[in-house]
Amino acid sequence: MSSSSVIQQLPLSARRPASSPRVRHFKEKAIAVAITAVAFSGIAALLLIVIFVGREALPLFFDAEVAKEASLGKLFLPQQLRVGKPAGFMWQPVGEVPKLSMIPLLLGSLKVTVVAMVVAVPVAVAAALFTAEFAPRRAREVLKPVIELLASIPSVVLGFFALMTLASWAQGSLGLTSRLNALVAGLAMAIAIVPVVFTVAEDALTAVPRSYREASLALGATRWETAWRVVLPAAAPGVLAACVLGFGRAIGETMIVLMASGNAAIVSPSLTDSTRTMSATIAAEMGEVVFGGAHWSVLFFIGVQLFAITLVLNLLAASFVRRAVRRLGGTS
């Protein structure tokens, strides 16, 4: 029985007084506008943050006073640091001649993030593949929530763990000179991003239609061949999205690197030297920087760069996914 016939059967007195079509139309319109406004407020907030951060970084380009200390050349090109020494990169923002090279920080962020991704992505994707394809139902019901629970460990706790336990272990077993370094920070960060990558990748794998698995098995493929050759490729866009999300988390993560990386802004290719990331630099120096000076603007500029890196990576991943989906026939 349709709902309209129920309404028809009600005595007239029980119905709500019908509003005029114009009033009803106005009401509909108002609700639509309200919902649209709420939806756009999120985008507006993001936009305002970008504008605010960007505005504070602008003096680097337009204020002659600031640009003298921190021009783009000074930020990215090698500088004469001392008379008679070869040019180099140095982050030493407070001093008679502030040295504000971005290179040590970019390198630091890169090192820690790469270590974290190289460790976390294989672990997380393998765990997701196992959970989605091979784990008995009972095991899956335990595994998924437990791994996801990892995501709720505060990063300060992970940092503390890295600082106390992981660093000592790494130093003892590898014989390192610097206790806190890119490797230790990267490993601790891997713990933080495994659950992020795992959750999204597992969802993507589980969403692969059962008919693909059945077709593969019916052709005489083993479960492993099915998982590796059919399910994982079919879920590739989702798994890639998981990795990008993990990368975003890694490059922006602050507390773990602040505690475990050693915070020495040096240019060194070695993973076992102390290092300093962009995010940790903002966190450590924002509190005592001179308001409105070159250093202040540079810190905001670091924020802009972090935002830009994440944005570019997201766009690249999105275009890759779009191309992959088109190549596969545009099912989604």
């Binding site: 008919s211 059945e214 077709a215």
Partner: peptide, 26 residues
């Protein structure tokens, strides 16, 4: 003993790779 299903379920791969799949896993 091969099987053809009710709903056609080609893999999201090329036409060639769909047919080659069973041979490859063999």
């Amino acid at each position: 003993v091969g099987m053809v299903f009710q709903k056609s379920n080609p893999f999201p791969k090329s036409i060639f790779e769909n047919v080659a799949y069973g041979l490859r896993v063999a």
